[in-house]
Computed example of a mutant assay.
Amino acid sequence: MSVQAAEKSSSIRLKTEQAFEAALAVGDAEQDCAHSIGKVRALALVRYCRWVSSATRPPCNTVNECALIVRHIRGMCGSPKAQTLAQACERYGESDWQAVNRMPAH
Score class of each variant (00 low, 15 high):
Arg91Phe: 09
Lys81Thr: 15
Glu65Phe: 05
Arg71Phe: 08
Asn64Gly: 00
Trp97Glu: 06
Tyr92Trp: 10
Glu65Trp: 05
His72Glu: 14
Val70Pro: 05
Ser53Ile: 13
Ser95Glu: 14
Val63Pro: 03
Trp97Ser: 08
Ala6Asn: 05
Arg102Met: 06
Thr56Lys: 15
Ser11Phe: 08
Leu24Asp: 09
Val100Ile: 14
Val100Met: 02
Trp51Met: 12
Glu17Gln: 08
Ala29Pro: 07
Ser9Arg: 10
Cys60Gly: 04
Leu45Arg: 06
Thr84Tyr: 11
Ala19Asn: 04
Ile12Tyr: 10
Ser11His: 03
Thr16Pro: 03
Phe20Gly: 01
Ser95Ile: 07
Leu45Glu: 10
Arg13Glu: 12
Tyr92Cys: 12
Trp97Cys: 11
Val3Thr: 06
Gln87Cys: 01
Ser54Gly: 15
Arg13Trp: 15
Ala86Lys: 07
Met103Glu: 02
Thr62Asp: 02
Leu45Gly: 08
Asp28Thr: 13
Arg41Thr: 04
Cys89Trp: 00
Ala82Asn: 12
Ala42Tyr: 02
Ile12Glu: 09
Thr16Gly: 00
Glu21Leu: 06
Arg57Cys: 08
Arg74Thr: 07
Val3Lys: 05
Pro59Leu: 08
Arg47Pro: 09
Asn101Gln: 09
Lys15Ser: 06
Glu90Phe: 05
Pro80Val: 11
Ala88Gln: 06
Gly75Trp: 11
Glu7Phe: 05
Thr16Ser: 01
Val26Asp: 01
Gly75Phe: 13
His72Leu: 07
Thr56Tyr: 13
Gln83Cys: 10
